[in-house]
Nucleic acid binder design. Structure first.
Lengths: 215, 215
DNA sequence: GGTAAAGTTGAGGTCGGTGTCAAGATGAGG
DNA sequence: CCTCATCTTGACACCGACCTCAACTTTACC
């Protein structure tokens, strides 16, 4: 706040326009949207983006984390507010998938497709902890299979990211069907032994760093 | 065969080298691999590719369909040879996923990520019919849930395509775990009503045409 | 209203990839 | 061996996106 006064008024306005445009464009086209598109929508030249935010990552980290945190937090909150632990879990997963559908920026966030953005990584980390609590509650309840690990949620969200990409045009509801199959596979009832251990946190880390793309 | 004599011997050799290099590079890097890489590996200039095959699609259609058909056919054959219909189904799905892991060209084929390649599309079509028979056998048996549609297999393969992309480096076996969850969701036992109808063939068509990318 | 600091612009360099074509190399047949 | 049709080459134009920086514009303050 004390620092903010060193920014000129017109610059302030441009920053505001940029933040707004970036939120829109990222939401429509994902975090890999061309910066030109954002600059254009803000009525500003690309140079300004780099002057202000240094890089695409800087811009992302300035725009997305707060938005993402809000959405993910309320999803988690509602899940824990749900009396039935399984219902809470299922609705949480469904809501997160819904976020992926509605907002391609969140899709990239949730499928961890954004290297070099520390704030966003922090949000993801917090969110994962919430998810872990939601899952553990459902496991304690006996409804969610005991061999499920919080890390396995990433599989669900990666799958859904792909589905959304492919089917959002021709069959916007297809993901719900796919998710229903998945959830049926996560109940304790039909659970069969698993062939492999869950991802370790280190593996999750490596996956997140090592990869950038997802088409 | 009668036509083939109009091609000069050195050209014949180059074509051979190109087919070979293309198979390798596509396998390692997927169907979107740069043509330069293929030309280089074949010890030939890019112009030659265009002279011979007209386009990336022409090259793909010259190299991949036969290979893909063989692999998919044997997978289907073994599935139907399996005494237990569920085992046949499950092993089929697993084998196809394995192909996705081992060969990135097949990964693109199986997740239908290759517009403009008629021969390959034909192979996919045939393969889908085989898959349908495998699924129906398991449904008749009562082991595969009755509301499953052959089109739903695409969900499984799309998911796996994504998983492979992300985790093949850090956790090469992760896909098996994810698939185990999925299969548990496809058994009749735990099946709950689905929220949405399966993809219609037209929707599948539109999905295949309308999209190209998958990162 | 003048000046200096702050801010913005957009042309231009870079990069990786696609696709083309005139010029030159090479094999086949006389 | 010579010639011609066939084949290959690699430089080139193109694209979309990234990022930079010298020149220019605007604001803030006196």
């Amino acid at each position: 706040m004390g620092e903010a006064r060193t920014v000129r008024a017109d610059a302030r306005r441009n920053i505001e326009k940029l933040l707004c445009a970036a939120a829109e464009v990222f939401g429509e086209r994902g975090l890999h949207a061309p910066l030109d598109a954002i600059a254009q929508r803000a009525g500003v030249s690309t140079g300004t983006i780099y002057h202000r935010f240094g890089s695409r990552e800087g811009l992302i980290d300035a725009v997305v984390p707060q938005y993402a945190e809000e959405r993910l937090d309320t999803a988690a909150g509602r899940a824990l507010a749900c009396a039935d632990p399984w219902e809470g879990f299922a609705q949480y997963v469904e809501r997160v998938c819904e976020l992926q559908v509605q907002n391609l920026a969140l899709n990239d966030v949730i499928s961890r497709n954004h290297p070099g953005t520390p704030k966003l990584a922090e949000v993801c980390h917090r969110s994962q902890e919430q998810a872990r609590r939601i899952a553990e509650r459902a496991q304690a309840d006996g409804s969610l299979r005991a061999d499920f690990a919080a890390e396995d949620l990433l599989f669900v969200f990666w799958s859904n990211a792909m589905l959304v990409r492919f089917t959002s045009g021709a069959a916007p509801d297809a993901w719900r069907r796919s998710l229903a199959f998945t959830l049926d596979g996560l109940r304790s009832e039909g659970a069969r032994p698993l062939p492999t251990a869950a991802l370790t946190p280190e593996q999750v880390e490596r996956v997140m760093e090592g990869r950038g793309r997802a088409a």
